[in-house]
Write a protein that binds this DNA or RNA. Structure first.
Length: 96
DNA sequence: CGGTTGACTTTCC
DNA sequence: AGGAAAGCCAACC
């Protein structure tokens, strides 16, 4: 397991419950500038059922990059509201 | 070692 | 406003 991924996972784990952040943010905090894609790649390699709160990571628009509704359901379960377009208000729910 | 890939982002039309 | 194109960078094969 690459140390980069470990750092990415560590950052994701620090996202408070009920908050969200973007791939770019996670990358920056993990010390990988402009590594948004790498974050996505790392999360895609994440086994289902892992303790990592991957659902709190959204793209720059504040929407899910995954097909399906699973991520949305998980977030709504934490109190995160989606607008009519299926987007989250990053200014309100963003990490910091 | 080099081309392909992708749960991204930004910038132009 | 919405879509296409280009830029990015590490992991994979």
């Amino acid at each position: 397991m690459s140390e980069r991924w470990e750092r990415i996972y560590a950052v994701v784990c620090r996202i408070p419950r009920g908050r969200v952040t973007t791939y770019g943010e996670v990358a920056a905090r993990a010390g990988i500038l402009r590594g948004a894609r790498q974050v996505g790649y790392a999360l895609s390699a994440l086994p289902p059922g892992s303790p990592i709160p991957w659902h709190r990571v959204l793209n720059a628009r504040g929407e899910s990059s995954l097909p399906g509704e699973e991520q949305r359901r998980l977030l709504e379960g934490e109190g995160v509201r989606f607008d009519a377009r299926g987007r989250v208000d990053l200014a309100r729910y963003g990490w910091r």
